Simulated scan of single mutants.
Amino acid sequence: MLFFSLLVLASTALAYQCTDFTVPVTVTAPTVIPPFPAFKTHYDAVGLLSALTARNAPNAPSPPPIIENLSATFDISLRYCEPDHRRHASAKGVQVLSHGLGFDKSYWDFGGQGSEYNYISSAIAAGFATLSYDRLGNGGSSIVDTYTVQQGPVQLAVLTSITKRLRDGNLHSNVPRPAGGKVFHVGHSYGSLLTHGLLATAPKLSDGAVLTGYNLQILGIEQFETSTTFHLAKENQPARFGGRSTGSLTWADELANQYNFLAWPYFDPAVLAKAEARKWPFSLGELITYAAVPNNASAYAGSVLLISGDVDRIYCAGDCTGTLESAAKTFVGTKRVETYLQPRTGHGLNLHFNATAGYKVVQDFLGRVEG
């Protein structure tokens, strides 16, 4: 069902308007059939976690994956924001924003209008429009099977379809063709993984990309998984997620949230409390298929910025020194590759005191790409 509402947001620095809408998106993508049955209880979930993180897990025998092709249509919730051209005439194109695990699209305007945690405001002030969206299973987008559908390649197919329709000017009646035909991609964490996948599989769809909270090694993935203890979302927050399947997972509480996403004392505890209250589950399917998202982007000829917090837990196990440079070397065909470590920052870059400093690095980079 197609619907939208128009929101007019005023700012003392720069006025802009946003349109919220939902569109049906049809995709075809490979999916992996998990080599184990769906969880019946949280005991099953923790049992699998124990097996995945055991010392011998990398060497344990496993059956070959069963791959099936999925063709389906999903409802995807989006928000398009653009500068008020009466006050800001230089439209530089559209940034497509892909959020990570544990969030929905509100990650990009987390603090609301006028907040230092609002990435969208920084992009608007720099002359860009933005298109943020809820990935499958999050926010206002379709709730799907968390074992066999809410997987990396399917999420990538959604991002690819949205980008194509945006470029063609047929995404929504309130979303014009990008100014100058320029489309940029900004991801966070799993959203960066998907953005990297887009550069690998459809390199001509993006004029420039920013991968935040990301590198190729995922050095802290076991720490992330273990710290969540694979809480079933339906039990952790029954009021919000009581109808979810057992493949919908989360972490226990705000302390686990802090461990994974935030670096003390460089955040406001009120921000952590808000992030915990508004968290979204991740799917078991996303965890077991992150390596199935292609990352050979040697054919991508645009520009790439890799930016992470210096003490990112999930991708760097708490120390990102040297990790971005090794990832940058894989982008062999790009015109420009840059790296930046945001000081005093954990995995959730947008939720720290110095978020605006990181925003400036991103907007300056994309401004140079546009030029």
Rank of each mutant, 00 (worst) to 15 (best):
G220R: 05
V175A: 02
Y133C: 01
L199H: 00
G213P: 03
A209E: 03
S121I: 02
I124V: 14
Q223P: 08
F224D: 02
T146K: 14
L211S: 01
L193I: 14
F184G: 00
R177V: 13
S189M: 06
P153F: 01
A123H: 00
R167I: 12
S141D: 07
T160E: 13
K204W: 13
D168Q: 15
L216E: 14
Q113D: 13
V186E: 10
S106F: 10
V210E: 08
R165G: 02
G137H: 06
Y214E: 07
L205P: 02
H172G: 06
F128H: 09
F110K: 04
S227C: 12
Q217P: 00
I162K: 01
K105A: 12
F110W: 12
Y119K: 08
K182I: 09
L219R: 14
G187P: 06
D168E: 14
F128T: 03
I120G: 00
Y107D: 02
L198P: 01
G112A: 03
A123D: 04
G191K: 00
N118W: 01
V158H: 01
G152C: 07
Y107Q: 09
A129V: 07
H196W: 12
N215W: 05
G180N: 07
Y107T: 01
L211P: 03
V154M: 04
G127S: 08
T195Y: 04
Q150Y: 07
G187D: 02
V210L: 12
